Amino acid sequence: MTTSGKWLILSGVSRGLGLALARDLLAQGYGVAACSTTHNDDLAALEADHPARFLWRSVDMAAAAAIEAFVAEACQQPPGERLWGVINNAGMSVEGILSTLPVRDIEHVLQVNLTGAICLTRAVLRQMMKTRKSGRVINISSITGLRGYTGLTAYAASKAGLDGFSRALAREVGRIGITVNAIAPGYMKTQLSEGLDDAQLAQIVRRTPLNRLCELADVVHLARFLLSEDAAFITGQTLVVDGGLTS
Rank of each mutant, 00 (worst) to 15 (best):
S4H: 14
S4Q: 15
G5A: 09
G5T: 04
I9W: 01
I9D: 00
R15A: 02
G16E: 04
G18T: 08
L21F: 13
A22R: 00
R23Y: 12
L26I: 12
L26H: 06
A27L: 14
G29Y: 11
G31L: 01
A33S: 14
A34M: 09
T37N: 13
T38D: 03
N40R: 09
L43F: 08
L43Y: 07
A44Q: 12
E47N: 08
A48Y: 09
D49Y: 09
F54W: 06
V59T: 02
V59F: 05
D60T: 04
I67F: 08
E73W: 07
A74C: 09
A74G: 01
C75K: 01
C75G: 02
Q76M: 05
P78K: 01
E81T: 03
E81L: 06
L83E: 05
G85N: 03
A90H: 04
G91T: 04
M92W: 02
V94P: 01
I97W: 05
T100K: 13
T100H: 11
P102W: 13
L110W: 10
L110Y: 05
Q111H: 14
N113Y: 01
N113C: 05
G116N: 09
I118R: 06
I118Y: 07
L120Y: 04
L120G: 03
T121K: 12
T121D: 01
R122C: 10
A123S: 15
A123T: 01
V124I: 09
M128H: 08
M129V: 08
T131H: 15
T131Y: 15
R132Q: 15
R132K: 14
G135I: 07
N139Q: 13
N139W: 03
I140H: 08
S141A: 15
S141C: 13
S142A: 12
S142C: 11
I143C: 01
I143Y: 03
G148C: 14
G148K: 13
Y149Q: 14
G151Y: 12
T153S: 14
A156C: 12
A157Q: 03
K159P: 00
G164E: 11
R167M: 13
A168N: 10
A168Q: 07
L169T: 05
A170R: 06
A170H: 08
E172F: 07
G174Q: 08
R175A: 14
I176P: 01
I176T: 13
I176Q: 14
G177K: 09
G177A: 15
I178T: 05
I178E: 03
A182I: 00
P185H: 13
G186D: 13
Y187V: 15
L192K: 00
Q200A: 15
L201R: 14
V205Y: 11
R207F: 11
T208A: 12
P209D: 00
L210A: 01
N211P: 02
R212E: 06
L213Q: 05
L213Y: 10
L216Y: 08
A217W: 10
A223Q: 06
A223Y: 00
L226D: 01
E229N: 11
E229P: 00
A231P: 11
A232I: 11
F233G: 03
F233V: 12
I234W: 11
G236A: 09
G236T: 01
G236M: 03
Q237E: 15
T238M: 05
T238G: 05
V240S: 07
G243I: 02
L245V: 04
S247A: 12
S247E: 06
